[in-house]
């Protein structure tokens, strides 16, 4: 008990003086590199990502095209660097909206209980009853395939995990003395919820959102692969893999490099999640 307390208290100190867990720094570094690449894509990318060079189709990696070219003669390296912009955006928005919706609804359910809780939990049951990807696809198809539809679908489906996580946390913290103290001091519901409950309940969700970013990223790639997300010819890693799959035996580089990009970015997020979890003393 006391040890756990000191651990949390020292987290900030350890971080400030470089004593934090290694995965945190590793994950942070990977994400930073990808972020820098995305921001500086116009400067770094050697070619226009959608320029089709008819004379340089299906070239293996060489000194001119470091990662080779695809069947339209587009430079893979440039497409990966530009694609980082889209994929980071997918990971960000695909997490932020579900996080906000789920946290708000989950904390309401946990705090107020009663019929609000019952109704919300039944809705969550319904959402969870459908296979995740099928539900996503259905929503996107209804709305019109595209990136914005993907975000809407992600928000509509992804919030449930956050809601359940936060609700469970709130239920535990709600019975602690400092919340009772807040009630006894006559604080309003919103003050208790936002100043006292949420700051203590949200840690687990923050850590989870990092590992969720990995799933969102892979989902985004899958949806694009299925032709429902980012539309060609935009450079996006999922599409690149989809387009390259027919050449997998003859031109491995078309699919391999975007694959490695997805894996490293996902690893960055999951290392960060591990590190954050260790630093904040959150166990999933």
């Amino acid at each position: 008990m006391t040890l756990a307390r000191t651990q949390t208290a020292r987290a900030g100190f350890r971080l400030a003086f470089g004593g934090g867990p290694l995965p945190l720094y590793l994950g942070g570094a990977i994400l930073l590199i990808w972020f820098a690449l995305a921001v500086m894509a116009p400067l770094l990318a050697p070619y226009d990502p959608i320029f089709q060079d008819g004379t340089a189709r299906l070239q293996p990696p060489n000194s001119v095209h470091w990662f080779g070219t695809d069947n339209f003669g587009r430079d893979i390296l440039s497409r990966i660097v530009w694609g980082a912009r889209i994929d980071l955006q997918i990971a960000l928005f695909g997490v932020v909206f579900p996080f906000l919706i789920g946290t708000t609804l989950g904390s309401c359910a946990g705090y107020f209980g009663g019929w609000i809780d019952t109704v919300l939990m039944r809705i969550i049951d319904v959402v969870l009853a459908f296979p995740f990807l099928v539900l996503m696809m259905a929503i996107i198809v209804i709305l019109k395939p595209g990136l914005s539809s993907f975000y809407v679908a992600m928000a509509l489906v992804g919030w449930v995990s956050y809601a359940r996580l936060v609700r469970a946390q709130i239920l535990v913290i709600k019975s602690s003395d400092f919340v009772l103290a807040a009630t006894s001091l006559g604080y309003s519901h919103s003050r208790i919820m936002f100043r006292h409950l949420l700051p203590n309940a949200i840690l687990g969700s923050v850590v989870f959102s990092m590992s969720d970013a990995v799933l969102v990223l892979l989902n985004g790639a899958a949806i694009s692969y299925l032709g429902l997300g980012v539309q060609p010819p935009t450079a996006e890693w999922g599409i690149m893999i989809a387009e390259g799959q027919s050449f997998i035996t003859s031109a491995w580089w078309i699919t391999t490099f975007p694959g490695i990009a997805i894996v490293t970015l996902a690893m960055g997020f999951s290392l960060l999640a591990d590190g954050l979890g260790e630093l904040l003393g959150v166990r999933e």
Partner: peptide
């Protein structure tokens, strides 16, 4: 009632918000 009464708790740590 809330403006004229207060409570003191058993667990000195538990009664205070750890993040404040």
């Amino acid at each position: 009632l809330r403006r004229q009464s207060a409570m003191i708790f058993q667990d000195p740590y538990g009664a205070l918000n750890p993040r404040m």
